[in-house]
Design a protein around this nucleic acid. Structure first.
Lengths: 133, 133
DNA sequence: ACAGCGATGTTATGTTATAACAGTATTGTT
DNA sequence: AACAATACTGTTATAACATAACATCGCTGT
């Protein structure tokens, strides 16, 4: 399960700091938790974190979990060819599993097309209990 | 497209008030917007609304839209036999379409089973532009 | 009568997110 | 080098969303 190493060459200072914090955590963090982690690095205001997160999400390096109001590092970055489609969130241990499933992606797209709905983004979050719990 | 009439026989006063407000709106409302609507009815505190919403969601009479931090009346109540699976949210006009699709439901369930994940609830929200916009 | 339980009302507080404005850094162009 | 354009940064203040804690009320069943 050795994960990838991300270098973030093009990231700015704050973006790097936030990305590093997310990766170190290995799970979802709230913006304010990230901020607290980074006070030692000189960050002081929520906006500094939110602005970095906005970019990271835009770049596909991080994802926002709507049902948690939290953010996670993308597991897939750098491998290309997959869009993140869904998350399985364990309500007991907090573990988040990121899923790329092209069948699901297609299904969502065709649902949208049925209604002539121009889908821009999709949020799929499954809540429950994971294997280990 | 004549929709159903809901009578809410078993609802408490606050639950009725909140449900009525959601139905009258015909679209998503934030808890605080609901509160403002109901100040004339004597409601004063957010908790009064949140507590009612919690029950309504539990009863399946309303849904929470995670990506909007808002709530909508369920379109389907009283017909039985369908679980709400997804929402299509227009980012331009704010219109929300509620979708029951058993194929999608099955797909989510089987994704969960693949990982031996005991799914309790699912959130599926598609963002984009609707036909009319 | 009274215990149990769920709903209510209220105050206070916690948590998440953005507005508005000023300044700094980088890049590309002439 | 001078400049404009663009993006990022820092800061203060505030908005928007949500819950904790506690006291009380009003049913229902025994």
């Amino acid at each position: 399960m050795n994960e990838h190493v991300h270098t973030h060459e093009k990231l700015t200072k704050n973006q790097s700091l936030v990305m590093g914090t997310l990766e170190k955590a290995g799970g979802p963090l709230s913006a304010y938790t990230i901020l607290d982690e980074l006070r030692t690095e000189g960050l002081r205001a929520p906006l500094q974190v939110y602005r970095a997160l906005e970019k990271l999400v835009e770049f596909g390096l991080a994802h926002r979990l709507e049902s948690l109001n939290a953010f996670v590092a993308c597991r897939h970055t750098g491998c290309g060819g997959h869009k993140t489609i869904a998350f399985m969130i364990c309500e007991k241990c907090g573990h988040v599993r990121e899923i790329s499933d092209s069948a699901l992606a297609g299904q969502l797209q065709s649902l949208a097309e049925q209604d002539q709905f121009a889908m821009k983004t999709s949020t799929v979050e499954l809540r429950g209990i994971c294997v280990e719990c």
